[in-house]
Simulated assay, not measured.
Amino acid sequence: MSGLRALRNRFVDAPDSLGERFRAARWERFRNCFPGIADMRVVDLGGTASNWTRSPLRPKHVHLVNLEAHPAELPDWITAEIADVTDPEIPGKLGEFDLVVSNSTIEHVGGPSQRRRFVAAIEQLAPLHWVQTPYRYFPVEPHFLAPGFQFLPLAAQAKLVRHWPLTHSRPATPEEGMDAVINIELLTRAEMGYLFPRSVILSERVAGLTKSLTAVRTRV
């Protein structure tokens, strides 16, 4: 493993990484918000089976909805399908759940109109929710581990991502570089408050700085 890959692994990917410690603390906050999680039917928008199988919590049932393929074999308490919940016809077909969970997904769904459709789906699917997203004004962009990356012009982002050493998978062409960055729009506290006016917006902090925001509704 190269030194730079080892550095990314230390920060984000390894089981004992800083990122994994943040995820463990987030699960504990999640447990405190939803102490009855063991009896809940959860729909996870944008989530993965591995996220739940590694979790210290186990809901009654989890249904994964993602645009990417799911593993062929899943535990009996997890089901999955490929679907786009910003399509207004999809949420009604998914059924009803107790809780919507979505981690680091809303910043990928597209512009403001798509985000409003995403929130409309959340409201339709369940009375409770936990919707987490990286905070735009945290100094390090979380997808590429690059300081100030989110404030660069789009063309500069697409060029830099092809050369930045801490990128998870560096794009090989200019087109791939643009594909990697064009659908990432980090949100502010103002936008999260606008999208979730009846929710509590929690802050996850690192060294006193807000790292991510979570819109939480724990009661009807």
Rank of each mutant, 00 (worst) to 15 (best):
E96M: 10
E96R: 11
E96H: 12
F97V: 00
F97D: 01
F97K: 01
D98N: 09
D98S: 03
V100N: 02
V100T: 07
S102L: 00
S102G: 02
N103W: 12
S104M: 06
S104G: 05
I106S: 06
G110T: 03
G110M: 01
G111R: 07
G111Y: 00
G111T: 01
P112W: 06
S113R: 09
S113G: 06
Q114V: 01
R115S: 10
R115W: 08
R115P: 02
R116W: 05
R117H: 05
R117D: 02
R117W: 01
F118Y: 14
F118P: 09
A120T: 14
A121M: 08
A121F: 06
A121V: 12
E123C: 03
E123Y: 14
Q124D: 14
Q124L: 15
L125G: 09
A126D: 11
A126K: 04
A126V: 12
A126C: 11
W130I: 00
W130N: 06
W130G: 08
V131K: 00
Q132P: 07
Q132Y: 10
T133I: 15
P134R: 04
P134K: 02
Y135V: 05
R136W: 10
R136A: 14
Y137F: 15
Y137C: 11
F138Y: 15
V140Q: 07
V140L: 09
V140I: 15
E141L: 03
E141C: 03
H143L: 05
F149G: 01
F149T: 02
F151C: 07
F151D: 15
F151M: 06
L152A: 02
L152P: 01
L152V: 03
P153E: 04
P153N: 07
L154E: 15
L154W: 05
A155H: 08
A155P: 00
A156I: 08
A156E: 13
Q157D: 11
K159P: 00
V161S: 00
V161R: 00
R162H: 05
R162D: 09
R162P: 05
H163F: 13
H163G: 05
H163W: 12
H163Q: 12
P165V: 10
P165T: 09
L166Y: 06
S169F: 05
A172N: 12
T173Q: 03
P174M: 10
M178D: 09
M178L: 15
V181Q: 12
I182Y: 04
I184T: 15
I184Q: 07
E185P: 00
E185I: 13
A190P: 03
A190H: 10
A190D: 14
A190W: 09
